[in-house]
Simulated scan of single mutants.
Amino acid sequence: MARLCERCWNILANEMAEADGATAAPRPEPDPDDTSWIEPPICPECGASVRVYPTNYDRWVSLSTVELPAKDVPEPFRWRLTKLPGPSLIATDIVAVRVRGLDPAPGEPVVPAHHVMCVPD
């Protein structure tokens, strides 16, 4: 497997993010002393709640809050949420992975990118 320098990796990751629509801003780090409830971000276009997740290539994507059958989501906008492997049985983090390669079964649930579901007011 080839290793890329930092500059080359950023170029590649930015190109992948642009192609996948993974252009969301990262979630702000919560203040460890703040005990207030953290609300999900709201889309400025349609006012719906969105889920913002890191991708498996260190960029961020806005996803819908509902899963839909794969047959109802256009191919370029299908995502899955995957737990990062770790030594613990408790998932420490979740990343969004774009569904590629083998197509999911028509009824298999996928998470659509938010901009596919976004209907501006």
Rank of each mutant, 00 (worst) to 15 (best):
N14K: 02
E39L: 11
I90S: 08
M16I: 08
G107L: 01
K71M: 05
V111S: 00
M16Q: 14
D34N: 14
G86N: 15
R3N: 07
R27G: 00
D33Q: 09
P109V: 09
H114E: 10
R27M: 15
G101I: 08
A113H: 11
D33W: 05
P69L: 15
E75I: 04
T55W: 09
V61E: 05
P44E: 13
V119H: 05
W37S: 09
L81Q: 12
C43R: 06
R98W: 02
D93F: 12
P40G: 02
S88R: 14
T55C: 09
H114S: 09
E108M: 12
E29I: 13
E29D: 13
P109Y: 06
K71T: 03
W37H: 07
D58E: 14
I94C: 10
G101Y: 04
C46S: 04
V52C: 05
N56A: 02
V52G: 01
Y53K: 04
P87N: 14
P74L: 13
C118I: 08
M16Y: 07
E75M: 01
A48M: 11
P109D: 08
S64E: 08
C118F: 10
A48H: 02
M117C: 15
P28Q: 11
A22F: 04
V50M: 15
S88H: 06
G86W: 12
E6Q: 12
L4T: 02
I11L: 14
C8Q: 12
M117Q: 12
G107M: 10
C5Y: 04
Y53D: 09
N56H: 14
A2V: 02
Y53I: 01
E45R: 10
L12P: 00
A24R: 00
R80H: 12
D33P: 01
C46R: 08
A96C: 11
V110A: 00
C46Y: 03
P54I: 01
A48K: 06
R51V: 02
P41K: 01
V116N: 00
E39H: 04
H114V: 07
D20N: 14
D31L: 06
P28Y: 07
E18H: 11
N14M: 05
A24K: 04
G101V: 08
I11S: 10
S62V: 00
P54G: 13
D34G: 04
W60A: 07
D31A: 01
A22T: 09
K71F: 02
A91E: 06
H114N: 07
P69F: 11
